[in-house]
Amino acid sequence: MAVTMDAPSQAAPSRQGRSLHRFANPGRFLRLSKAVFPWLMACGWLITLVGLAWGFFYAPADWQQGDTSRIMYIHVPSAWLASAGYFSLAIASAVGLVWRHPLADVAAAEISPVGAGFTALCLATGSLWGKPTWGAWWVWDARLTSVLVLFFLYLGHIALVRAFDNPERGARAGAILALVGVVNLPIIKFSVDWWNTLHQPASIGLTGSPSIAASMLWPLLISVIGYTLVFAALVVARMRAAVMERRIRGLLMARATTDAATDQDAFA
């Protein structure tokens, strides 16, 4: 059962989707996000600035790469957010496809531009790190190429969602693209293990101790947390704006319909 943003559905959702519908109600989302958003944005920026200042001024330089390793404090968080952002886009798309909930469609539509921005940042900072380290701005390495494909997937999603007059059809087409593109995420993750690449393998993993000094690891973790909060705050802000814009369109259309009916009555 599809639920429209402008006119709440009278039909009760299925039992499985009831809790989801309760928490994904646009009105409730606006109220909850109004309280959370300022804290999310302020904490995100504060933590990001602390992490970047720590990385730029106080963290030690790498013994081989020198100060270029300081690019890591931007490159690694943006690479993490490029993949994590796409994963969240895929989850929102799956929820939108299965439950046809408009808030999931709004989330997918608003995640992709932010994700594309952070993927572009990842590619740009990687290039700035690659030139002094490898002697080249770009190489057709498996990791770099798969991240470039991710960037194109984001751009494709942005274009596809906006390519239809009917927003629901655009959201559905974008959701299918997002779900198909998920196959690229393990390719990005394991590209450095599966192929002989110029890009270094992961320094931090879920299992095993990190192969990076603690004096570099702490500012890196702080930057990752800060950038993640900023990413979340940006998505929430864009979603709030999108929900309000949909409500404005609904009210204007309702007003136009009423005015047209009044004019017809006057001429009759």
């Binding site: 730029f56 100060d67 790190w129 900023v230």
Partner: peptide, 23 residues
């Protein structure tokens, strides 16, 4: 600082891109 221009450009982008999105 070695390769200052590369590091400074990366930090300018690292602050500029999220700032532009925020604004």
């Amino acid at each position: 600082m070695t390769h200052f221009a590369f590091v400074a450009t990366a930090y300018a982008l690292g602050l500029g891109v999220p700032l532009a999105f925020t604004v």
